Amino acid sequence: MIDLAIWNLSVPVGIPAATIDTPRLVGGYQDGYFRSGNTLFFWAPVTGSRTDNAIYPRTELRETYANGAVHNWVYSQGDNFLRAALTVDQVPSTGKIVIGQIHCYGSTEPLIKLEYQYKEKLKSGNIVVKFRLTPTSEPEVIQVATGVLLKERFTYTIHLTAAGNLTVNAHEMQWGAKLDPAWSGKPLYFKAGVYTQDNTGYATEGGAATFYKLQATHDKKA
């Protein structure tokens, strides 16, 4: 079972999109966009509603404390890991869904997005990092892995150390970077699920993924 006691959930219903708080999520919340059990299933159709300041729909978890309060952290306080094992089950016509993030509280610009990008001609997808060196930088786009099939199970780990070293392992490939000191002191948080990078089409179009493992940890410095 995946521990849901450290997450809330955004679902693409209502204006703005609804947030399911942690106690309700732990209590067994399920709907047409999210199912939990031994795995977590996420579905975000292109026609879904959006969170404030977003242009695309999402069914996505966001870090919290068990009481439902949002959990933001400063990377210098410890070793920060987001680990997942999943399959991407469906993509929209753009081929793109975000499956993991380090976001910055109070900002619309995340530090990093991990994105699956399906290529119709190749019948497989790439795993791409979109990384901001500083909070005001335009994102760099880095291809980490290729040849990832739809419905193929793979793992990823996003690791940010107290020294600001960022590493992404995905589909047995690795990429890393050193954060600019401008990120120090910024309140950060992990997100995971399906953030569909498309907002046009039929209600049957969208992004879907099944997570077999999902764990966010923060190992405090001694």
Results as ranks from 00 to 15, higher is better:
92 P>T: 09
201 G>T: 09
38 N>W: 08
14 G>Q: 12
31 D>F: 09
116 Y>M: 09
1 M>C: 07
36 S>C: 11
173 M>Q: 15
127 I>E: 01
214 L>R: 00
48 G>H: 08
82 L>M: 11
27 G>W: 10
187 P>I: 12
203 A>C: 04
64 T>A: 10
104 C>P: 00
162 A>N: 08
125 G>H: 04
213 K>Q: 10
147 G>D: 07
153 R>F: 03
62 R>W: 03
35 R>W: 05
193 G>W: 05
14 G>W: 09
178 K>I: 14
140 E>W: 08
4 L>W: 02
168 V>M: 07
134 T>S: 15
194 V>M: 07
146 T>S: 15
58 R>N: 05
84 A>S: 08
66 A>Y: 05
215 Q>T: 06
141 V>K: 14
194 V>E: 02
81 F>S: 00
142 I>T: 12
203 A>I: 13
72 N>T: 14
136 T>N: 13
133 L>N: 12
184 S>Y: 12
194 V>Y: 03
41 F>H: 13
128 V>M: 07
5 A>S: 15
105 Y>S: 15
60 E>V: 10
222 A>Q: 09
5 A>V: 00
69 A>Q: 14
94 T>P: 01
177 A>D: 07
185 G>D: 11
146 T>M: 09
34 F>C: 07
17 A>C: 07
112 I>N: 02
192 A>D: 02
58 R>M: 08
61 L>F: 06
176 G>Y: 09
122 L>R: 15
110 P>H: 12
42 F>A: 04
181 P>I: 08
27 G>Y: 10
210 T>K: 10
165 N>P: 00
167 T>P: 00
78 G>W: 06
190 F>Q: 03
188 L>E: 03
196 T>K: 04
6 I>Q: 04
88 V>H: 03
16 P>Q: 13
124 S>A: 15
96 K>I: 10
10 S>E: 11
216 A>G: 03
36 S>Y: 01
6 I>S: 04
35 R>F: 06
148 V>D: 01
77 Q>C: 01
82 L>S: 01
153 R>V: 08
94 T>Q: 06
52 D>I: 14
125 G>T: 05
34 F>Y: 14
164 G>F: 03
70 V>S: 14
203 A>L: 06
136 T>L: 14
25 L>Q: 04
22 T>E: 02
43 W>K: 12
47 T>F: 07
